[in-house]
């Protein structure tokens, strides 16, 4: 190396170092107050703290390298986004039902290997979730299951909804704020699956339109072909003394409509939901573009679809 080049090299290194440390700590993350933090058993709390709190609480504890400029910008983005999705420090602001649903969500994103993000784990090995950790979380959420036999109120609600439904005329045209229209023909489609949720006490029937049903038979579902439509009908569970569960109160219809171009920002699927027997369109354009896909991302490798039956029922923890 010539002397001139050497000087240049030194200057470059100095400049880089300066750049690197100039903003050290500068892009600090504002740790807001903790109002209504999650109250979970100690062993559960410990897991959430070590693996999730950096991005999902107001108690972010960054490592020194997280504070380096450039890196810190990316970290900050993660933290801000993470908190927006889930914040254990503002847990009490959620309704009890929402809290419970979030906990199942938490367990499932971990189980699917979606969280903590792999990129984070590479630099923060303390956040690795062990099998023992998972067992602790599973035991915890299992304890939240409330199994209830149908009481007289549930039976009455179901009956009165049924009576007014059979008397009413078929619902006229319904369109979701994002333009997806309710398709009354769903009732003539192939049944794709039937499911029973023990996390939230609902049962569902899933319908596949002819394109989607053909795609299942051809195993052409990763990705699903354009024009595939999946409709999910959902009811509250009514369980009798013999352990037979039937549809109770009708809750809603949910749609996924495949069009890779049109719905490119939501995994190629358009989402819509119609509530109650009157099929009232749910949400607005923003909600339908975020809320649904945020959770369906857990099965991104299945082209965002959860409800197809697999040959081996895995007993994966």
């Amino acid at each position: 190396m010539s002397k001139r080049n050497f000087m240049f090299f030194i200057a470059l290194v100095t400049a880089l170092a300066a750049l690197l440390f100039a903003g050290y700590g500068g892009h600090g993350i504002n740790n807001g107050s903790t109002v209504g933090e999650i109250k979970a058993p100690k062993e559960v709390d410990n897991i959430l703290r070590k693996a999730c709190y950096d991005c999902h609480s107001n108690d972010t504890k960054l490592a020194w390298f997280d504070r380096l400029p450039i890196i810190s910008i990316a970290v900050r983005k993660d933290v801000e986004e993470g908190r927006r999705h889930l914040n254990f420090s503002a847990w009490e602001s959620l309704s009890p039902t929402a809290r419970k649903a979030k906990l199942w969500d938490v367990y499932n994103v971990i189980r699917a290997g979606r969280m903590p993000p792999i990129s984070y784990l590479q630099t923060h090995s303390k956040a690795i979730i062990t099998t023992a950790d998972r067992q602790i979380l599973k035991t915890y959420i299992d304890g939240l299951i409330i199994k209830q036999l149908a009481d007289s109120t549930a039976l009455e609600t179901t009956l009165s909804q049924y009576n007014s439904w059979i008397k009413s005329k078929a619902v006229s045209r319904r369109v979701s704020p994002n333009g997806i229209a309710h398709m009354p023909a769903y009732k003539t489609w192939q049944v794709m699956s039937a499911t029973s949720r023990f996390d939230n006490g609902t049962i569902r029937i899933l319908y596949a339109n002819p394109i989607a049903s053909q795609a299942i038979q051809n195993k052409n579902i990763n990705p699903w072909p354009k024009g595939s439509v999946i409709v999910k009908a959902m009811w509250q569970k009514l369980e009798d003394k013999e352990g037979q569960v039937r549809p109770g109160k009708f809750i809603n219809l949910q749609y996924m409509v495949k069009d890779k171009r049109k719905y490119s920002s939501t995994g190629g699927w358009g989402f819509a939901r119609f509530d109650g027997p009157q099929l009232k369109p749910y949400g607005d354009v923003l909600i339908l573009a975020t809320e649904c896909i945020d959770c369906h991302k857990t099965v991104e490798q299945n082209d965002f679809v959860f409800n197809l039956s697999t040959k081996q029922s895995s007993e994966k923890l």
């Binding site: 499932n108 599973k138 023990f198 409800n307 039956s309």
Partner: peptide, 17 residues
């Protein structure tokens, strides 16, 4: 009638097998 099995992709849901 199908046998009920756990949904592989969501813990909390059972599906027809």
């Amino acid at each position: 009638t199908w046998r009920q099995q756990p949904n592989t992709f969501w813990y909390g849901s059972n599906i027809n097998g």
